[in-house]
Amino acid sequence: MNERLARIVLGVVLPASAAAIAYLPYLIYRDDLPDRLATHFDGSGTPDGSMTPSMFVVTTSVLLGVGIVAMIAVALTRRPLHQVAGPVGGAMGGFLAGLGSGILAVTVLSQRDLVDWTDASSPWPMVLASLVLSIAFMVAAGLLTSELPIRPHPLPDPAAIPVMALDADEHAVWSARLHNRWLLVLGAGITIAGVVYAVFTQWWILVPMAISGLAVLTFTSLRVQADGNGLHVSYGVLPWPRTHIPVDQIETASVIDIRPRDWGGWGYRGSLKLMNQAAVVHRAGPGLRLDLTDGKVFAVSVDNPETPAALLNAEVARQRATSS
């Protein structure tokens, strides 16, 4: 997809579709709605809060409006986008627009013909539907934003690009593990808090808490391996997820100082597919940076990144020598 078309879809088609999803059901069924809509439910799915339909339209329109403004703003930006703020802004705009329009549409569609708002049925199908819609909008907006020009990372310092001397018959592998005790404490804390909270309140709290706890625990240990096949990163003890960057996709490997705020925080930040950059930020400090042949950038925290950088540059040179 070319850049112009991406801007049009992101700035016009997506906002217009979100607005249509939000307001068309309301305009069609506004006379069939009860005086008040059920807008809040307790944990068992019984409605316990309500709003007038017009008030509900205003509330959801705020979400929708923020999302639409964000998508249009990204679509209208002529300058190359900031590496983190641009893609995040586009995707979050899509998410909010999808959420606002989804909530309004499914509420109107599921509560039309109700006599009284207390008769509203369980909200879970509606929550699920709005969530699916907002994720669809988020992915669409994120993919479109990735078509727009992004501010290039400054090229690595030539002094930070070491090359190892490898003979034709020599094979090498470099491997390192990284542990972060603070993340271990945090992950365990979240998981335990989830269990305790679930025991005393509602069991389903455990699901999001356990997922976020496990996500943090996954990042408490990393194994990074560099060899003739490229770079492999595996997380935690599980065989999945893994990251593999083949050597033929690497342009240069270099040494950088990773500052979490440059990459958007700790953990796996960014996305090679959607944001043209990704970093496994384990802590502030030395890291290995890979500039890929398609202009994308991958970085990972490691101690002594000179060795894997030198090894990968040697393997890249060897690969090019044999393929040309």
Binding site: D167, A172, T307
Partner: peptide
């Protein structure tokens, strides 16, 4: 940790 081997070595 870096390991390297020379397949051509005796």
């Amino acid at each position: 940790m870096l390991l390297r081997v020379d397949l051509g070595s005796t």
